[in-house]
């Protein structure tokens, strides 16, 4: 019966069926694609772009190493030309990879809450823009090259820049993000402590007074420790130079890690007192 119906469909009707299926598929694809693209935050989008660039960098590096080995073994003009092309491409991919990472750091800076912060967001993000601008110029220089001998000095120049200002300015930003985020969490923790105190104090009686008093002193001590760690991190942050590479940012991270451990402790204390009361 069904086959009779199918046969009875005129070419015009068949065309309409195919067209409808095509439209449905097109709609499905466009909506799925738009949901994936527009559902992402700018930070997630930049992260994805960086991952793609990392793959490109790895491919370019493998190609460069193969061509370089070939050239060193045979020293022919063709091998030299191929090595030049692969090295140039590799240098460009390094440039793009660093630029994508700087954009990722910048987007992270845009994603955090800077309200009530002592740090100037725009000033810090401008440091990254300066390095992005350098990378743009460096790319233009690499793009202009026509011979293999021109590439090693450009690679050395990028290496020097990376080990001085690119790393230093990125570290400065990472250190600031650490501080801003930790200070924000600490401010929220302080506000929550006060709210819990206001909640439990009216419930105080002879049975639980000792617990509440001890909790009170313990949470105050934890808050003080958090503040001490933040102050330490601030001191280390001020020492981060934007002119040369250093490990100062690790000291900032170490100090904020201490503050984070104390914040975890305060969370446990909040839960404990609410369980007891």
């Amino acid at each position: 019966m069904h086959s009779i119906y199918a046969k009875s469909l005129k070419p015009k009707a068949k065309r309409l069926v195919y067209f409808s299926i095509f439209i449905i598929m097109l709609l499905a694809f466009s909506i799925k694609h738009s949901a994936n693209t527009y559902g992402q935050t700018p930070f997630e989008k930049t992260k994805e772009e960086y991952s793609i660039q990392l793959k490109k960098y790895n491919l370019a590096r493998n190609n460069y190493l193969t061509k370089k080995a070939n050239y060193e073994a045979f020293k022919t003009a063709t091998a030299k030309k191929e090595t030049f092309e692969s090295t140039k491409s590799y240098l460009i991919e390094i440039n793009f990879l660093l630029a994508d990472k700087l954009r990722l750091v910048k987007e992270y800076g845009n994603s955090i809450d800077w309200e009530n912060s002592n740090y100037n967001k725009n000033e810090l993000l401008t440091l990254l823009d300066e390095e992005l601008s350098y990378l743009q110029n460096h790319w233009a220089d690499v793009d202009k090259t026509t011979a293999l001998e021109q590439l090693p000095p450009l690679a050395q120049e990028l290496k020097d820049r990376l080990n001085t200002t690119i790393v230093a300015k990125t570290d400065k930003n990472i250190g600031a993000y650490e501080l801003v985020s930790t200070e924000r969490a600490h401010a929220n923790s302080n506000s929550l402590t006060q709210q819990i105190k206001n909640y439990i104090n009216p419930l105080s009686n002879d049975n639980n007074r000792a617990i509440i008093n001890n909790w009170d002193s313990e949470i105050d001590s934890v808050n003080q420790n958090i503040q001490l760690d933040i102050d330490k991190a601030k001191l280390e942050f001020e020492k981060i130079s934007i002119e040369r590479k250093s490990s100062r940012v690790n000291n900032v991270i170490e100090a904020t890690k201490g503050a984070r451990a104390e914040l975890e402790k305060s969370l446990d204390l909040y839960r404990e007192i609410l369980r007891i009361i």
Binding site: L54, Y57, T87, L98, V105, Y108, L151, L162, A185, L267
Partner: peptide, 24 residues
């Protein structure tokens, strides 16, 4: 606040600059 504290660590690793071989 727990979520906020958990997130403090999460993205930090992703921000570190990549190790690139520039010894050309």
């Amino acid at each position: 606040l727990q979520t906020e504290v958990d997130l403090l660590d999460a993205n930090l690793v992703e921000l570190a600059l990549p190790e690139v071989d520039l010894n050309i």
